[in-house]
Nucleic acid binder design. Structure first.
Lengths: 220, 220
DNA sequence: ACTGCACTGCACTGTGCAGTGTAATTACTC
DNA sequence: GAGTAATTACACTGCACAGTGCAGTGCAGT
């Protein structure tokens, strides 16, 4: 997992290089590698193709990254870094009306998975999970757990202020995610059906919220 | 997709061979191939390993299956053939009490995905979906669609006899599946967390049914 | 004994790919 | 313009693996 940063040695020691920590070749290689790995998987991707796609010589790829595995790790790390964080502040309005808060959280989750690159990345996490156990672990710790945490926290607050009656916030959170992900995410991951329209997304979120309200609403 | 069946020629023309359509080597190869492909994926699996695992000579593998791709197709076909079909007859009791019918359907779905080989197979459908578009298509047509159809049919019957008020049976079916699959299936597919206990499964099914009853129950 | 057939073991071809060594070329800095 | 470091093109090694050809073996049925 140690990544060689050939140029950083120079940029660190050079006088004016501090201003330009660009490393354009390195970035181009990483960008191309991300594309190629997401499209073909680890085995299916060849260093030759990465070089061609990045416009760099094959040797340069190896000068920047000591192995295919290191390149893969670096590319994955970059994707993680660029991933948005699902985090929603629960303001007064959201705490007052669970339907508002849940809609907001639901839309955030849906928007998180909306970009095709997110789905492709999840597919790669599943595909390469055996070869790189870090992938599922990081996916869980950096991707899933925070979103779950935010959702559970919100549901507990809602429960404590009496807006809803939620005995098991963790279960409720998973249920809510299930209502959203089954139609909007997993079908795309498996690769059947067309990507959902925004109207469809909205509908699914609304219906999921209605489901939560019906099940946990104390007004029933 | 044409599979060579070297021995079937003989068994068809031979006199007493009709009694023994065993083809033990072929079956052993298919069994081993299934195991190897599920464990390593298409690229990661080598014909050498399949031969070794099956106890057959490498040449025999090629005598039975004309290529790696043909072997893969045959192995996948065999898995499809052995898959149980999620189909539940809606009897009087189930039609009279939606909670009973939904519990039954839910348990059937959960049991369908319970065996690790089912999860491994779904993982392979996702992994190799690009290389073999038949996989997701067949998964959808032979695996998902029938289950959805059975669920939708049941929900429509329940709706028509007034037990529940379900305006959109397809949406409701996907919601129900989402409530079940998110905690019980997808976590295992991604490869995080331990397989759920049977108590957990039961709990998830019960809670999913409660959710459906709360949302679509006309008694509310 | 003879024949047909599946099976085996082995050597072999061809290919694609990871990774390396090197000399020439380019780009940047002073 | 000189010096330095990155970059490039190219040749090369080593390896794993798909697929083939072939000589030989064991085992029916005749």
């Amino acid at each position: 997992m140690v990544v060689s940063r050939a140029r950083s040695v120079k940029t660190a020691s050079s006088s004016k290089a501090a201003a330009r920590a660009e490393m354009p070749k390195r970035d181009a290689i990483l960008e191309a590698a991300t594309r190629v790995f997401l499209a073909h998987g680890y085995e299916g991707a060849s260093m030759d193709l990465v070089a061609k796609e990045s416009g760099a010589a094959r040797r340069t790829v190896y000068n920047q990254f000591e192995s295919k595995e290191a390149l893969f790790s670096a590319a994955v790390e970059r994707v993680w870094r660029d991933f948005p964080v699902v985090g929603i502040a629960a303001d007064k309005e959201a705490l007052g009306d669970p339907a508002v808060g849940l809609s907001r959280l639901g839309r955030a989750v849906v928007e998180f998975w909306e970009p095709p690159v997110a789905v492709a990345f999840l597919r790669m996490v599943i595909s390469e999970g055996m070869r790189f156990p870090d992938l599922p672990r990081n996916f869980f710790e950096a991707g899933k757990a925070p979103a779950m945490r935010a959702l559970i926290d919100y549901l507990q607050q809602i429960n404590e202020n009496g807006s809803l009656d939620i005995p098991d916030a963790e279960l409720a959170a998973r249920q809510f995610l299930g209502l959203l992900n089954e139609p909007l995410l997993w079908l795309r991951v498996v690769g059947v059906g067309e990507p959902p329209s925004s109207a469809e997304c909205q509908r699914v979120v609304e219906e999921a919220v209605m489901m939560m309200m019906a099940r946990y609403g104390s007004s029933g």
